[in-house]
Write a protein that binds this DNA or RNA. Structure first.
Lengths: 215, 215, 215, 215
DNA sequence: AATGAATGAGTGTTCATTCAT
DNA sequence: AATGAATGAACACTCATTCAT
């Protein structure tokens, strides 16, 4: 009556992303979502087979987009230097997260909960993400561009740098009066990440710490 | 009957930290907590004036300890070089978070939600945290040890590096078979952070990017 | 698209009888019925003006068939002895119920509920049933074949014997490994009923109990 | 506040029996029950762990009482003739059902539905009931008092005669203006059942029908 | 004739909390 | 200090039905 199929489904998702982001998944009721989307609450079960299905739809949408950012750039490995590929990949992810900053914040928060669904997300998407990062890092080390640091720690740092600004956007806003969804912020922040790559990752200074102290 | 005042209160907090961490604040019921703590649910309202009060107690406990890690080291600024102060502060925080890794994960997740209480946390504790970091960085720049990078971005990166391993501990566990609560991990990870300080923060390479492009 | 008018209507009724029988009227949803019948749920409202209309159609179908069994045999009263008419009537009903055992079970169960519709059923069909039984019994008593027992109790017993095997078919199946829908069972059971007629109803032993004790 | 533990629990059960009887289990809402019992709907889950638990409590209460009627009389087998034991057992059951006529109607109706719970009832209580009847009939046949009729059919007829008046009490009321819960009715009806025992069960007339026709 | 989107009322259940004891 | 009965509001979800197509 008041919307076509596509519209209703999208209205629900849009409202859900805002509310999940603001109040968390468990803190959001289906009635709130329906009210915000100006549709009938029953439509949520109708289209997404329940609140959890709606969550899954959001997660899927995010990770499909997220991973495709990386995938694209991995293909460039054959014709571009690994550090360039890495920088472009990170930039692409930053842009994607900037465009979907509400979704981004809530997804990374939700994945940090020990639920069945977050375990599934990790098992599928994040394992793949690990593999894609691995391809780039491996190539960089082989070419002698990247320092031979423990891969896990490098990737964790990378992911930290990529994710935190969005996850803690409220902190940024209230303490630093800065907004990670602004184009401006992303540009500045990308420079910092590039600096990290150039200085910390590509620096061929001694890596004896790890050689000596740790297995 | 089965516990003294102090014991009951602590039993509740301990159980709450485990469950808030695993299932999130909104995903945890007071009955679950009471059951795990083997006390009567009414005691939660009795001791903490409700579920929210219990949350506040957890948050307070965390941030008091967290900030005191930093504060201690800021006092050293007068007699030790700023980079050493910074390293020690971060190390202290890492250790604190390692010892309270369940609390850590859930607190940083909860603070990312747009609730009244997280706004209060930010206004009090995180503003203070900002100030403490500021003192260290300012001193470092004045002494010509730290590069003159935008303070906000530096602090965000620092906080990212400190927080993410705990926030995404499930990811670390399932993808990397690594546990941030292990002493081993913290030592390795601290080396990476020191590397970041040495290379990225202390590197006096040109900072023209920021001079030119950004305010 | 996938069925003509007649087919769709019948598909719905067939599915409804199975499900009403298994899960009860209130326990069955129109979606379940539509799914089983492989038609669109809206067709139920379309053809039967709602779930209740579907129920009424089932009830009507049953009682029309049920009563015609009796009626046929009442016509024989003029040319056959009453006990023979009675036996044939009961046999006819048993056969009818055997052929419609799913419908039978659910109808007699549903009629035991205090709903508007069951009151209407009673007012129309069961009052007529009473009258038909009355004609046979009256004739039998007049001819001195049937004992002069209270008519209400005789008819209640008759109806009990006819109905219960179908109503409790699950009990029969699981406790006695017997199926009231089998031809075999009905034959055996008919002998028992005939025995009841010969011994209990036709026995002209003293009926003083009732003369003395009861109005 | 408005009732002690025992009272609230019983208020709920009493209200449930009335409503389950009138509208059926699936047709009755927990809010209806709570309203009738003048208690809070949440108490139903609190005391019975949900609507289904309430149903189970009703069923259990009925069958415990029902079976104890039979059990008592089976103990008399050693000192009284089997037909006398049987008559007393049936009379005891009739009285019990008369005193709990609402519960009786709804229980026998509910058991006729193919649910998990009715299957459990049958597996436990009705199998035991079968055994108790068996003990009596076996003794009667051994003593040459009962005709050697197929046990299953005899028991089915017995159960039919016992149950149906209560199950179809609405029919009795509206067609025959008779109430199975009246002491009067039970006495009259018991005479009919005794007549059935004397004439149909104890009659030693030929049982060749079954010998010849059936296995 | 038949469909699928859409609805508002309803479902059973769980919630954090209160209160007399 | 601690309990368990009790509550009212909220929860996610299902219901039979309507209606434009």
């Amino acid at each position: 009556m008041n919307a076509t199929l596509k519209e209703t489904k999208e209205l629900i998702m849009d409202a859900a992303i805002v509310l999940f982001n603001t109040k968390g998944y468990d803190g959001t009721g289906v009635r709130d979502i329906a009210k915000k989307a100006k549709v009938n609450p029953a439509n949520i079960s109708y289209y997404f087979k329940g609140k959890q299905g709606l969550l899954e739809a959001c997660l899927t949408q995010f990770f499909e987009g997220y991973l495709s950012c990386l995938e694209e750039k991995v293909f460039l490995l054959e014709m571009a230097p690994p550090d360039e590929c890495l920088k472009q990949g990170l930039k692409s992810i930053l842009s994607f997260q900037r465009e979907n900053h509400l979704l981004t914040r809530f997804v990374w928060r939700e994945v940090s909960i020990d639920s069945q669904i977050s375990r599934e997300i990790i098992a599928s998407y994040l394992v793949k993400e690990k593999y894609l990062f691995h391809l780039i890092l491996e190539q960089g080390i082989k070419e002698g561009i990247f320092a031979n640091l423990p891969e896990s720690l490098v990737i964790i740092q990378l992911k930290s740098l990529l994710t935190m600004p969005f996850l803690q956007s409220q902190y940024l806003r209230e303490v630093w009066h800065t907004f990670p969804q602004e184009k401006y912020f992303v540009e500045k922040y990308m420079i910092m990440i590039e600096r990290w790559i150039d200085s910390t990752l590509c620096s061929l200074q001694e890596t004896r710490h790890f050689d000596r102290k740790i297995i």
